[in-house]
Design a protein around this nucleic acid. Sequence first.
DNA 1: TGCATGATGTTCT
DNA 2: GAACATCATGCAC
Length: 212
Amino acid sequence: MPEQPGELLPREFLARPAPEVAPGLLGCVLESETDEGIVAVTLTEVEAYNGEEDPASHAYRGQTARNAVMYGPPGYAYVYFTYGMHFCVNVVCMPPGTASAVLLRAGQVVAGEELARRRRPVDGPARNLARGPARLCQALGITRALNGVDLCAQASPLRLRPGTRSEEKNSIDTGPRVGVSQGADVPWRFWLDGEPSVSAYRPWVPKRRART
DNA sequence: TGCATGATGTTCT
DNA sequence: GAACATCATGCAC
């Protein structure tokens, strides 16, 4: 239970490079409020994308209409559509002008599990409802409509609260990022050790084109 | 149990 | 026209 309902993550906390912010986001609570109800998850896996100097970032080739949110002030949500069927959500870092962001990859549902389960009917009970970026968004009901919302505002449908130190700071492990073709040698993926729900490292596999 | 492939829409060159 | 920060499914062993 939240000690103070209005307590949100301070925006200044996010006004730093993504690789520094990312480990701090582990254990934080992402809360989404829709007409159906509220679903909250504890972040267990994130990835840092360091703007234009990061070949794997959407901002690598400069600002576009899609990634404009990343160039804005920190504390906002950058939601994008990928692979034709999935959403992914990022937390914008760094002051305006710098496109740094943290991709939220996985989380543990701590509230509204019933609603999350309704959104994603899963048979396996042991299966995490938010194992993977796209699943995390679906469990929380995140769509492109939430692109650019303020994560540090109470009135937002998507809020970010500081992590409860009850987790006692589980060991944070790092490793190469997942699903990126470039920049895989940079260990900017962070996850809570001992969380089997995090996705396994998947080496870059060139999409085998149907070359008949 | 584990790997390999297909699906699907938006964005950028 | 091609790529993509993915997931679910099918088949093999």
